[in-house]
Nucleic acid binder design. Structure first.
Lengths: 301, 301
DNA sequence: CTGAATATGTACCTCAATTACAAAACGGGG
DNA sequence: CCCCGTTTTGTAATTGAGGTACATATTCAG
């Protein structure tokens, strides 16, 4: 994992998400600091520790301790990482307050803001073991059926099928509900049903998951934690994503799902290429054993 | 635009570009500092002024003077702004060095790294006027035909068509080459042909652009700057995106294109809803003029 | 109600950043 | 070639920020 072992102060983990997540677990005065920081994110990096302590009404060591609680080495590092985090996800701070209608690049910034926010939240929730399990199931799959419900998810499903298919694994995307049930029923052991659903509550996917699972297929679901689909799935890749209430905005969760699909596809590609290499090695080894030569073989690779 | 009118010290000006630009105009020893900073961008923000001065072989005031020459208030501000500038394009610097095969969340981080890098580069290149022009053309379009070539682009095209269609504008996505030429030929003034192509060199899209343009349709192209397609298009939304040479990795430019499409769709949605509101206002105004009442109208909105 | 554990503040210390000033290098006339 | 003004650079001192040790207050279990 690159995140932990990156340089220090390199802002690997998203401080702001971290802050939200730890909210409530702080000691009383530290919580006051947290509140102030949340409310004045942008100003912090220009403040001295004394100014901040003064503004909050606590002593400077409390501020230092707060920084430590946040996983930083001290106030210095905290300021730096906060500044870096803000530079990347600046737009996220005031998603709805800003005036979209200013035109030009304003809309792009809005979309980017939602994208950053969603994707950062998603990253935090990824369970590596689940990913590994999903990759293994997909790598060894005889065939894969992908389905998604809701506007964005169908696109993601389509893309997932495309990518898997390119890796030489028979894969189809299904968007029709009835067809999905039928496809699900044709799956057996070693096959994978990959379902994408933000809510995880739609009857069609839940029922498809049940059917496929009943026939021994592995059901991989990208969905909301604890949803019906998550419970029904063999491997649940869960992400609870914030949705912007503004209906004009596109659902940013599409991006998060796409990232997961891309990551899965990339890992599968890698696993398969390694398997291929391993096969080649075996072929070569057996050839060597057969005619006793150890030099480079003209055939076999 | 959020970037310029943010608080102070918020890294409004790009320090790194500034550094390149001022290169050569520095006094001798300051130039040495500049060289060192250029070569060790990432480490600087973790260094003390004494360490930096020592590493370069100059005195600390020289470093301070260098910072002043760069337009900063002192070394502190310089470090901070540099860190912010770097945070935005950090991942782009060492994309392939990372080890993918570690499994787990490693793949997700890789995809995210490519995503951030691509999307930030794209954001930098967006020309607001082009976006506005595209939005206007799309808003007033009688019908829209969308097409994309290459694996990722078809998905983007599909999505664009879906979103525009939901806004009540007749829109279709075409992936078949011949069909595209035919569709292009049916377009007229007020219609829009939206083309998505990373390279902008594929004959099919260039020819389609020519045909549609010949019949008076507006051709909006999301593509590489200076490409054949960009030249042929009425409105070219240009982005020169870095592609990772690793073929196992997904093409991150899809994300950038999707963001552009989302931004366009959102702006169009807004423009249309404003048009609707404007229409309502006119109706109400005329009604008011008609029977002279100024109180709230039961009808009209 | 008491004592341990935890939370918070006071006072001090260290060291980083900055400034003031002096020395050195440079450059153009006499 | 030397002198004087300007610019560049370094030394030493100053300021103040960040961090630490320890004392005090608070909380909660028994």
């Amino acid at each position: 994992m690159p995140t932990p072992d990156n340089g220090p102060a390199q802002g690997a983990v998203d401080l702001i998400s971290n802050l939200r997540q730890l909210n409530g677990t702080f000691a009383a005065r530290e919580q006051k600091v947290a509140d102030f920081v949340s409310a004045h994110l942008e100003e912090i990096s220009g403040m001295t520790i004394a100014e901040l302590a003064g503004a909050v009404g606590v002593s400077t060591p409390t501020v230092v301790r707060f920084c430590r609680s946040m996983g930083c080495d001290g106030f210095r590092e905290f300021k730096l990482r906060l500044a870096q985090n803000l530079a990347v996800s600046l737009q996220y701070l005031a998603p709805s307050h800003r005036d979209v209608s200013e035109g030009g690049a304003g809309a792009v910034d809005q979309v980017l803001g939602a994208l950053y926010a969603t994707v950062n939240v998603m990253r935090q929730q990824i369970v590596p073991e689940r990913m590994d399990a999903a990759v293994q199931a997909l790598t060894e799959a005889g065939q894969i059926v992908v389905a998604g419900v809701g506007g964005g998810s169908t696109m993601v499903a389509q893309e997932a099928a495309n990518r898997m298919f390119r890796l030489g694994i028979p894969a189809v995307a299904v968007s029709d509900s009835y067809l999905l049930q039928m496809r699900a029923a044709t799956l057996g052991t070693n096959d994978v049903l990959l379902l994408v659903s933000t809510s995880g509550a739609a009857d069609e996917v839940v029922s498809a998951a049940g059917i496929a699972g009943g026939y021994g297929a592995t059901v991989v679901a990208i969905t909301r934690p604890g949803s019906r689909l998550a419970q029904e799935a063999t491997i649940a890749i869960e992400a609870d994503l914030p949705e912007d209430p503004d209906i004009l905005k596109p659902t940013a969760s599409r991006y998060a799902h796409l990232v997961i699909v891309d990551a899965l596809a990339m890992s599968v590609a890698q696993a398969r290429s390694e398997a291929t290499t391993e096969n080649l090695r075996r072929i070569r080894a057996s050839l060597t054993a057969y005619h006793g030569r150890t030099g480079p073989q003209p055939l076999g690779d």
